[in-house]
Structures are given as structure tokens and as C-alpha cells.
Design a protein around this nucleic acid. Sequence first.
DNA 1: ACTTCTTATTACCCTTGGGTAAGATACGGC
DNA 2: GCCGTATCTTACCCAAGGGTAATAAGAAGT
Lengths: 222, 222
Amino acid sequence: MDARGPSSDSSPWMPFESRRRARDEKREAVLRTAVHLFLEQGYRRATLNEVAERLNITKPALYNYFRSKEEILFECYALGQERVDEVIAEINAGGGTGLGKLRKLIRGYAGVMMTDYGASLVRFDTRDLTDRNSKIVRAAKKNIDRTFRNFIAEGIADSSITPCDAKLAAFAIAGSLNWIGHWFQRDGAMSAELVANEFAVRLTEGLAARPTRMRASPPRES
Amino acid sequence: MDARGPSSDSSPWMPFESRRRARDEKREAVLRTAVHLFLEQGYRRATLNEVAERLNITKPALYNYFRSKEEILFECYALGQERVDEVIAEINAGGGTGLGKLRKLIRGYAGVMMTDYGASLVRFDTRDLTDRNSKIVRAAKKNIDRTFRNFIAEGIADSSITPCDAKLAAFAIAGSLNWIGHWFQRDGAMSAELVANEFAVRLTEGLAARPTRMRASPPRES
DNA sequence: ACTTCTTATTACCCTTGGGTAAGATACGGC
DNA sequence: GCCGTATCTTACCCAAGGGTAATAAGAAGT
């Protein structure tokens, strides 16, 4: 009886039938479900029981894939960081002015913030990690911050950005972007592309060196 | 023995001596200590036992002043909101262009964010409140957001702000400011005034209508 | 001094939820 | 078919921490 198909959420575990998919696929499904629930309810309030329930399994089964709740949390962070690192690597591979790179970073980072793993970076609390993992995450965050500052400094050096306090400017921009992780919802009225583009423009308007006075080489644009 | 004065943190309770200060003063001290600890460790992780310990009393004594941990949390929110409301009221009492009001709001809101109760607004999770209180707080937050948007819209109407999407602009600005609550520390290198002023300038640079080319009617924008 | 109110203490309750132990159930190789 | 391995279940442990009950102790009025 009750031979319904996969549950509303796509879970590799059928209620009581063939549950023999590849291990990695299941592990990933656990992670997807967990991060979703953590974002929905908050890490501390979300229980592994409910994660398991949403996957049609029981809590101890989760321990086949993760050693602890904290490990799941850490992987959420790690995946988010990975996405950001990809964005940064891609920008560094290409060229352009400091301003151009900064715009690309804003667009890319905004895009990541609108994903579950990306939002993990700003919605979860590193104090819920072990000391060891906490250090790793905070180092990675510091690296992101440094990238923002470097691009701004680079832009000031190549005159694509008007001189300013790189540290505070980076805080202002990163803050705006981080906050996206708190309010954006994929099913809302705004599309991710719209938001990312709008922020890339808006947040750099104030920084761009104005070409009011034409110079020999106008600032290149991304 | 051990006739030391008030403990390192200023607590109206002496270890075992005259503890007969006014009730309100004590209630306020509980609140101050609690919000500090909540910010330091996170609401869920912070325990009432430790709050009490820092005040040289025991947990049940707290229940003379508050009915529950959640009530303490709610009061933190309430006090933060109060501060912001004062800022808004003061601006509304005065005059000025939309841009001018927006700058004042940014400065004032930034200032509030750098206080403990102000940071409460963005560091704590409304999901830890009862439904009733959660609704109150979310309504107040919505009101703040609306104020940002209104000032921007006002500025566009009076041509002090260049046309733009008021909703996204407000998100960008408020995000920057909210993030201050996450990184600012009073004992750090930057002073509150410096940060507030810098943000008031930086976040409006891109919005200010440039008087470069006086037009009768500035270009409309989506 | 005696009572009363407030405020604090000690001792406790009890739910929640992460994590574990031991046994069942399926799958793959032989 | 049979055994070993991986996976999952039921049943449980246990620490943490919010909250309460009963009571002591100082303050204040009379």
C-alpha cells in the first residue's frame, strides 16, 4: 500500500523501496536538505531529526554520511567558500582595471549570496563550529575581504577608482552584498541576475572616477 | 576577606553586601549584561546561568525582573527600535531635501548599529521570539525599510537624488549599515563618528544628482 | 520585636536534541 | 544459497539549560 513515488522534495530515498543510489549522491542530498532547513529555521533550532524526516530516513542514518551536525555545517560553509573562490579565480585569470574587476566580483559574489550555500557564509554563526573549523572559515572570509580591498586599491592605483579609504569602502560594499543573503528569496519578485547587475552598478557609482574631464585614456569598462 | 568593590563589569550587586538599589536600575543592569553576552556568544548559546553569574547572582533571581529569556531578547529589540525611532522622528521634525534626510538617516542609523541594543536588531533572530513579539519586531523593521525608501523617493521627487529603483537602493544602503552591527567593535581602531560620516558620504555618492548638467527634467529610470 | 513584602538562594524538574549501541535488512561476490 | 559489508532502524543515553517550588534572609512598617 501507499506506493507513491518520490516525495514532494526530490529525495533519493523512496519511502520503502529501492534505496540503492550512489553514496555521494545521498551525501549530497543530505547536505542540500540540511542547508535548506538550517536556513529556514536557523542552525541551532533545526534538528537532525527533521533533516532525516524530510529525507524519509531516521536520524542515525545520517551518521553514515556525516560524523556530526557540526560537520554538516562546516561543509555548507566550505561549499559556499568554494563558489566564491571560483568567482575570484576567474576574475584573476582575466584582466581589466581595478574597477572592472571589482564590478565582476560584486556581480559574482552577489550571485553566490543568492544560493543556499552562499547564504550559509553570512547566515550561520562560525561560533557553532569547532575551533579548528572556525579558524578555517574565518581565514577564508578574511581572504574574501582582502580581495575586495585589493581590487579597490588596484583601481585607485590605475585611476579607475577615485581615491578613498579602501577598508571602509570594502566594508560598505561587502555589507550590502552579504545582506542579500538575508533578504533574497528565489521565489520572490526579483531575479538573481537583476539584483546582481543592479548592485554591480549601484555600489560602484560612487567609486568610479568620473570621466567628466576627458583624459588621454578613459577608464576601461567591464 | 575579599572586600573588593564592584566586580570588573559594573554590577549593582556586590558579592555579598548591600544589594538594595532601585529595582529599575537592576532590571536595566540585567538587560545590559544579557545583551552583551547574547552578542558575544549568540542568543541560543548564551545561558541565563552565565548572565546571572556575571551579575553575582543566580539564575532564579533573574526571574524577579523578567518572565523568560525570550522577554529579555524582546526588550533588546525594543530598545534598539526605540533608538532608531528617535532618529527617524528627529529627522522628520526637521526639514531638508530627500537626499539630506537620507544622509541624516544613514548617519543616525549607523550610530545606532554601533551600540549593543542597535546591533540586536540585526544580530539576533526574530524566530527566537514568540509569534506575537516576532510580528511586532518585523513590523518595526518594515517601518525602517519604508523610511529609507520614502526618503529616496522623496529625493527623486525633489531632484536631489538621481532616479533609481528605490527598493533596491534602500536594500543596498540598509544592508551596508546593518552589516556594521556585525563587524564594528567599540574598542577597535575606528571611531563611531568616523564610520557614520564615512558611510553617509560613501553610500550617497552614487545617488546624489550631479549638478554637472542642469536639466529641466532629469532622465527617468526604472 | 513581630509581621510582611521583596529578593535572593538551593534544589529540583523536565524537555530537547545530539549522539551511540545493537540488531535487522538488503546487496554483492563467491 | 551463503557470508561479509554497508546501510538503516529501533531503542536508548545523557548533558544542557530554561524554568519552578520551597525557603531563607534582609528591609520596612507599625
